[in-house]
Every structure is written in structure tokens, then in C-alpha cells.
């Protein structure tokens, strides 16, 4: 799985139309037609769909949590990297350099086996489920990417903008809050979308540490049914599901971009 967050996607209208027709038309059509041609296959699939869906809901949950946490932490870390004080800057720089280059799988394994299965809060034993650990692993990775995106965006704003705010009596933080960061949002959207999609894809890695997500569910199903055609069709369903998870992210980003460009 590729986890590049550095290049903005240059999907043209045409290629996005092709993608959309594969994801929303070709793959579902294949599943439906095959199921109708061989009704025994269709019956197996219908039986297993709820199980697959419960797995998929876990991918959605992990994606939303990891991206939200990673974006919040990443923006903070990116700003910390630009702080005028070394004791703020340095920890952020070290964090980003270490985790930006870590493979997602390694981080998920690390968080799974480093954190305990339960934590003690005020004398109470609270469970620390594996899916939360997967969220933390992916959030660490995405926060490092987003820190770099934020830092790059802030540095790309011309110094004359800072000068203008200074001349008007803004403090550094006020300038960031009202003038610099609002301009960064628009510039950061395409690379942010790449990170968010990568995280959505990355949720499938959680199956390797036992989280019951879609990939895990599909493996369970194909092991139980033991039919090659069912295995194939189950993984086509998996692909279509991941497509529907990533596609709204791309749409949302494009919508936001258009709104900013209109402004």
C-alpha cells in the first residue's frame, strides 16, 4: 500500500469519471450479475453481507477517529515546528522526523503490543480495545504527515503578509489565527485529502492485529464458505467498499476547494 502524502492528486475530470464508473457501476454490477447467474453464490453472499457490513463500520470508525486526531495533532505539531523557541520546536521536529518515515503497519503493530489491553483510571479497569490502538497508530502517522503539510503551507505564505499584520498591530498568534492559517487551509486541502485517503486504506492493516474490520471479515467469510468464486466476489465487495470510503473524502475536498476558489 502506498502511503505517499506529498503529491497532490492530479485527477482530471476524465480519469475521475472512469474511476467513478469502476467503483460505483462496474464492481457492484459484477457482484450482482454473478450472484444472479449462480444463485447459490448469491445466497452465500446475502448471508454474509451483514457480517461484512459490521466489519466495514469499524473501518469507517477508525478512519474518522484517526483523521480527526491526526489533523488536530498535526496542525499543532506543524505550528510547533515553526515556533521561535527551540524547546517547543525541537520535540516537534524529532517527532515528525521519526514518525513521518515509519510504515503504517509497524506503527499499528507497535501500538497494539506496547499499550496494555486495559488501563487503570482512578482504580477502575477500563478496556483498551485493539481498534483504539489502531486509531492511535494511524493518528501518529497522519499527524506527522499533516505537521509537514501545515509547516509547508505556513512557510508558503509570503512574508509580506506577516509584515502587513505586524504593521497593523497583530501579535504573532493573532496573525496566524486570522490571516496566515485561513490562507493555509486552501493550500493544504489536496495533500490533506491524500493523507485522509491513505488512512482509510490503512485501516485494513488493523486486520493483521486482530481488529474485526472489513478485511478481517472477508477473510473469515472466505474461510468459512471455502468457495473460490465466493472468495473472489467477497474481495470485490471489499474493494468497492473501500472505494465508497475514499470517494466522499475526495468529493468533500473538491467541494471545499471550489468554495475557497470562488472566494
Amino acid at each position: 500500500m502506498s502511503m505517499t502524502a506529498t503529491q497532490a492528486p492530479k485527477t482530471t475530470a476524465k480519469s475521475s469519471r472512469v474511476l467513478r464508473s469502476i467503483g460505483f457501476v462496474a464492481m457492484p454490477l459484477l457482484v450482482v450479475i454473478w450472484s444472479l447467474v449462480d444463485l447459490t453464490l448469491g445466497k452465500e453472499l446475502v448471508e454474509w453481507i451483514p457480517y461484512l457490513a459490521s466489519g466495514f463500520s469499524m473501518n469507517i470508525l477508525i478512519t474518522i477517529c484517526a483523521v480527526t486526531l491526526g489533523t488536530t495533532a498535526g496542525v499543532l505539531l506543524g505550528l510547533m515546528q515553526l515556533a521561535p523557541y527551540w524547546f517547543v520546536r525541537l520535540p516537534a521536529q524529532i517527532y515528525v522526523q521519526i514518525f513521518r518515515n515509519a510504515p503504517a503497519l509497524v506503527l499499528i503493530f507497535a501500538t497494539t503490543y506496547i499499550f496494555p489491553f486495559e488501563i487503570v483510571v482512578a482504580g477502575n479497569y477500563l478496556p483498551f480495545p485493539d481498534w483504539v490502538k489502531a486509531v492511535i497508530g494511524l493518528a501518529i502517522l497522519s499527524s506527522a504527515y499533516i505537521a509537514e503539510i501545515t509547516r509547508g503551507a505556513v512557510l508558503s505564505i509570503p512574508t509580506t503578509q506577516w509584515e502587513a499584520t505586524k504593521g497593523l498591530g497583530f501579535s504573532r498568534l493573532q496573525a496566524l489565527r486570522y490571516v496566515i492559517l485561513p490562507q493555509c487551509v486552501r493550500r493544504s486541502l489536496p495533500p490533506w485529502m491524500n493523507v485522509a485517503s491513505s488512512m482509510a486504506m490503512g485501516t485494513s492493516l488493523a486486520s493483521l492485529v486482530g481488529v474485526h474490520e472489513l478485511m478481517h471479515a472477508a477473510t473469515d467469510a472466505s474461510t468459512a464458505v471455502r468457495r473460490l468464486d465466493f472468495t473472489i466476489i467477497a474481495y470485490v465487495v471489499v474493494m468497492a467498499a473501500f472505494f465508497t470510503l475514499c470517494y466522499p473524502i475526495a468529493r468533500l475536498t473538491r467541494r471545499l476547494e471550489q468554495r475557497f476558489n470562488a472566494g
Binding site: 509580506t160 503578509q161 509584515e163 502587513a164 504593521g167 490571516v179 485561513p182 490562507q183 475557497f260
Partner: peptide, 10 residues
């Protein structure tokens, strides 16, 4: 007021 006006573009 500066030479390059420096308005906030957003």
C-alpha cells in the same frame, strides 16, 4: 502602507 499593498487575499 507598503509598496506591495499586501492586502489579505482571502
Amino acid at each position: 502602507v507598503f509598496q506591495q499593498y499586501n492586502l489579505f487575499p482571502h
